[in-house]
Design a protein around this nucleic acid. Sequence first.
RNA 1: GUCCGAGUAGUUCAGUUGGUUAGAACGCCUGACUGUGGCUCAGGAGGUCGUGGGUUCAAAUCCCAUCUCGGACCCCA
Length: 451
Amino acid sequence: MASPKPRSFKGTRDFTPREMIPRERIIDTMKRVFRLYGFSPLETPALEMLSVLTGKYGDEGEKLLYKLDYKNDDFENRVALRYDLTVPLARVIASHPEWPVPFKRYQIQPVWRADKPQTRQGRFREFYQCDIDTIGAPEGLADAEILALTVAMLDELGFKDGDKRAVVQLNHRKVLEGITVHAGHPREDLAGFCRALDKLDKIGREGVNNELKQIGVTDDGLRRLDDVLPLGESDKSPHEVIDALRGVFADEPVALEGLDGLALILTNLEQLGTPLDRINLNPALARGLDYYTGAVFESTLPDQPHIGSLTGGGRYDKLIGLYGGGDKPAVGTTIGLDRMFAAMEQLGMADTEAQTVTRVLLAAWSEDQFEACLRAVRVFRAAGVPAEVFPTTGKLKKPFSHADKLNIPYVAVIGPDEADHPDGLHVSLKDLREGTQDTVPVEKAAELVSR
RNA sequence: GUCCGAGUAGUUCAGUUGGUUAGAACGCCUGACUGUGGCUCAGGAGGUCGUGGGUUCAAAUCCCAUCUCGGACCCCA
C-alpha cells in the first residue's frame, strides 16, 4: 500500500509552536481585557443544523457553507460547519429566553467558508474569529463599552504610540441614511449606498464615485458629498464633527437621531476614561454588511494604511429577532485575529524567535548522573521554570545543539563534579546567548533562569 | 465560478536545438572536538524530475491528458 503524500487541506493551516507561542500570549491578553469589562466566555459547536444557517447570509454567503453529507441523507437533519459566530450566538439567545439581559459574551473559535482561498492575502477556508457582543442593551453605554474595550485591548497589545497607534473610526447608520438622502439617493437603497461607500479606502474617491454613479447617484449628488466626507479626514474632535454635521442635516430628523446617538456614546466613552483622540468620527465609514442599524466602527492604524482594519463592528438591533424570540438590541465587534498577528509581525511587535516554551534543558554527562538530572528538573519545575531533560546521555554536543536549534536560552549540565558536589546538587548552567557558564547549586540556577 | 503561470533532493531553485551516472545553496547526519551549541573544515545520506500515456535510437526537456500548487477577477475576514 502506497502511503499518500502528507498534505493539508487547501486553505487550512497548522500553527507551529513558533506561531502558537506569540498567538497564545496575544489571546491571553485579549481575554484578560474582555473579562475586565464583564464579558464571559462562550463556545458553541463547530456543527450547526443546516436549517439554522440557511437564509442568514444571502445567496453569496450560502454558497460558502460547508454542508456535510450523511449516509442515509436526511434532509431535516443535515448539518453544516459554522460560518460565523453571530448566528450561533443568536441561536443560543433564542433558545434561552429566560436568561437575564444584558448578556455579554466573548467567543474565540474557528469558522469555515467553502471559498477559494488566497492564503497570501490572508483568506482561508478555516480561520479564527474573535467576537465580543452585548445582547439586550439599548444604544449608549453598551456601544461605548465595546469601543472602550477595543481601545484598551489595542493599547495592551502595543498599538498605542507613534506609527503603531490605532484609532477607532466611528459612524452611524442613521447618519449614513442622511448622507444617502443628501446625495439625492433613495432612502430604501441605504445598503447599496453603503456597499459602494465602504470601498473608499480600497478604491479611492474616484472609484467610489464610479460605483455610486452605477447605482444612480447624479453628479450633483456626488458634489453634495463634499459637504460631508472630508470631515472624516479633518483634525476636528468627534464632538466638533458632530456639530458640523448637525448643520448639514438640520432638515433630516433621522440623521439628527444618529448624531444624538453618537454624542451619547462619546459622552459615555469619556466617562469610562477613553481619550477621545483615539476616536475619529468618520462620516465615510460605512461597513459592507447591511444588518447594522446604529453605530458602526472599525479600528485602523493611520500610519500603516496597507494593513487594513484590525477590528470592526456595530449595532444590529434587528438581527437577533430573525431567529425567533422577538427583537433584541445588540452591539458587538469582531477582532481580525489573523490580520492582527500579521500586523504585529510586520511591525516587529511579536516574538518570533521562540520555538519552544522550554527555558532550560538539562543534560547528564553520563548514565550515572541521569537520576541527578531528574532530581534537578523537579527543582526548576517547582520554581515555575519550564524545563526538560535531554533523554540520552553521552555526547554533550547533542543537547547543546538541540537547545541551540530551538532557541532554548539555558543548558544545565550535570556530571560527576556537579552530582557529587560537597555542598549538594549543583549544575553547570550555561547561558547560550551570552556564552557564559557557572557551576551553582540547582536552587540558585532555578532562580537565575526564572528572571 | 472565469482567465493566466508553474510542478526537479526536506526547502529554494539551476539544468543550453532532446544526448553518458540529473546539479548547487541552505537544511539534515557523521567526524575534526572522548564535559559544551553557533563559526570553520572534511565526509555522508537523500531524487521512478507531480502522475499516466504518446513521439524518438534516446525525454527533466517535445505533444496530449490528468492531478496539485501559485497569481488575477468576483466575494469576503
